[in-house]
Design a protein around this nucleic acid. Structure first.
Lengths: 195, 195
DNA sequence: CCGAAATTAGTAGCAGGTCTTAAGAGTTAG
DNA sequence: CTAACTCTTAAGACCTGCTACTAATTTCGG
């Protein structure tokens, strides 16, 4: 009987985590208790009121917008020998992970690899034409992903670049990119009429 | 000077854009007018009150959080028929482009495709095991990328998912993902919908 | 100096709370 | 059985940051 309180408070925590924009009244309704009880529970659990929750979310929102920029998801270039090989490192953060896990999303691994494959080719503008890759293991949040790109054969302006990504000694990704160096004049060549 | 009003209202717009979390009182202080004037100006300019601004920021924050972390969708999910097919759209922004061009980086195209491939498979946790893909054209900043995923054959918990991404009628990417549904671990799958 | 526009002040009311006090229900120990 | 206890709910006063409205006051161009 007395443990109804605990389960209710646990539910309350989950509800608020799920939908931080709920009013006490909505929460009370949801848990079939009075508003007073919700307020009491919130006080006990140290949960801030709706407006405080909105405020902190709004504050976080402004900083988040600026943190998802390019450089942070493609890693830092450590070494580069143009048209030969290159090395980059990417520090993974909590927000690069899948939902509740701490496994890094594949597209961050891809982004690092693809960016490196582009960087290693010496040309003004390089694009990926096609790729294939295999994820051989999972990276955890906090791991530093070290990607190494090697340029293979090239015909005309197409380069084959292989990328291997490791966490420590463990290989988590192997990929092969076909990249194309685009001559500067050809930029936007074939699709201007569409806008 | 009757044009003081206009310049003040312009300043007000800038101030609110800069710091959306300012109260009318702070704004009044800043512009050396009374709170009434600020309210009047806000009414004229159609600017919402502080709490509405906070609310919409907080809502955006959740939707961004949900779309980038929770649901693991890059882009907005338009339609989903689990284990069959799905559709998402991604509006491209300036910051998704290569350096000085307005061509969208391949890894955003990849991220949308891969996220969709993961979303379309009905399981608690789905990971990409391998993929191959071909970029058949370029997307420009401002284009809306529409990705369509189709689930192909599946053996055990491995699913083959094909994704085609288009800008209008033009296909810019075709890929094939092998995804793996990871058996549910110690997570109580207690999912409640929004309030 | 007059009159209209612009500004300020003041009122009541609302949402979503705070904090406090208090009353009732159910539970348990002596 | 009753006193002491916990849990829940209610009620009241107050708070912030507004809205919506009215009324007074200031300002400035002509």
């Amino acid at each position: 009987m007395r443990s109804q309180k605990k389960t209710r408070q646990e539910k309350l925590l989950k509800l608020i985590a799920q939908n931080p924009l709920a009013t006490d009244e909505q929460l009370a309704d949801r848990l079939s208790v009075s508003v007073s009880t919700i307020r009491l529970d919130r006080a006990v659990l140290g949960l801030p009121e709706l407006r405080e929750r909105m405020k902190s979310m709004a504050q976080k929102a402004t900083s988040r917008l600026r943190s998802l920029k390019q450089e942070e998801i493609v890693g830092d270039l450590l070494e580069l020998e143009p048209n030969r090989w290159s090395l980059s490192i990417l520090a993974t953060r909590r927000d690069m992970a899948f939902r509740d896990t701490n496994m890094v999303c594949d597209h961050y691994i891809y982004a690092q690899a693809s960016s490196l494959a582009i960087a290693v080719v010496e040309a003004d503008l390089v694009l990926v034409e096609s790729m294939r890759g295999k994820y051989k293991g999972h990276a955890q949040v906090g791991d530093s992903l070290v990607a190494r790109a090697k340029v293979g054969v090239h015909k005309d302006d197409k380069y084959i670049v292989s990328v291997r990504t490791k966490v420590g000694e463990r290989e988590i990704f192997v990929g092969r990119f076909i990249t194309a160096a685009i001559p500067p004049n050809a930029e936007d060549g074939h699709r201007e009429e569409n806008l």
